[in-house]
């Protein structure tokens, strides 16, 4: 449907094919972040987990496990407060920056880009980004990380992958925390692993306990090896 106005310009209604991710603008910034990480030789890991799964405890365990071999910088994403930043710095993080989303339920690439201004990447081999505790939307907003780590805990139940398939499908590594609680909370690891494998054939699955430290060394070694 077209018409021509008095100046001879065609007017009409047109269909424009786009086929572009709604996150396209975020993805551009994520790519810039990825280049920054690469330029510093830093492996960036985005940890996605529910509240209470043990993200901060896992980061602290990893810092301790790699002490003397690799330094870890941390970006802490939280709705409010800086408790976690203080904790990881006390545990020996190379540097740490807090991002408060002020109620926002996920981190976005632009927030990371801004945080990088205040973070000394030259001091670190690994950068761990602790996303806001949430298994849903953090999965959509890439941050520029080279590795996406999904952390689940036995106490949340073995059906987590069924309820939140996207994060398990899109992660490069799956970690089950609180392995020491498995029996107490009737966590069926066979079911959990079967559900993860239906979504993700290749991601390694690590079982750890941040309480006892079991399994942390294996995870730390694997992460370090990914830096290449």
């Amino acid at each position: 449907m077209t018409s021509t106005d008095s100046l001879g310009v065609m007017h009409g209604i047109r269909n424009v094919k786009v086929v572009k991710s709604l996150l396209a603008n975020n993805d551009l910034v994520a790519e810039a972040n990825r280049q920054t990480f690469a330029a510093h030789g830093v492996l960036a890991i985005n940890i996605i987990a529910s509240p209470g799964a043990g993200k901060t405890s896992a980061i602290i365990r990893l810092i301790q496990a790699l002490e003397g071999r690799a330094r870890i910088a941390v970006i802490e994403g939280d709705i409010a407060g800086s408790i976690d930043t203080e904790k990881v710095l006390a545990a020996g993080a190379a540097d740490a920056v807090q991002i408060n989303t002020g109620g926002g339920c996920h981190l976005e690439a632009s927030m990371i880009q801004q945080a990088l201004d205040d973070l000394d990447l030259g001091q670190a081999e690994l950068l761990i980004i602790e996303n806001v505790g949430n298994l849903i939307c953090p999965n959509y907003w890439k941050l520029g990380e080279q590795l996406r780590l999904c952390l689940a805990s036995t106490a949340e139940g073995h059906d987590k992958p069924l309820k939140y398939p996207d994060v398990f499908a899109a992660s490069d590594v799956i970690v089950i925390n609180k392995s020491d609680l498995a029996e107490l909370v009737d966590f069926d690891r066979k079911i959990f692993i079967e559900l993860v494998r239906a979504l993700n054939e290749h991601a390694p699955i690590f079982e750890i306990s941040c309480r006892s430290g079991a399994g942390v060394a294996e995870l730390a070694e694997w992460l370090l090896a990914q830096r290449g």
């Binding site: 094919k17 991710s21 959509y140 398939p165 499908a169």
Partner: peptide, 18 residues
């Protein structure tokens, strides 16, 4: 085998007036 994780999220097309 997983074919589509059901998480599509994209702008397909638009109708515009020129």
């Amino acid at each position: 085998r997983l074919q589509d994780d059901g998480n599509a999220c994209y702008l397909e097309h638009m109708e515009i007036e020129t």
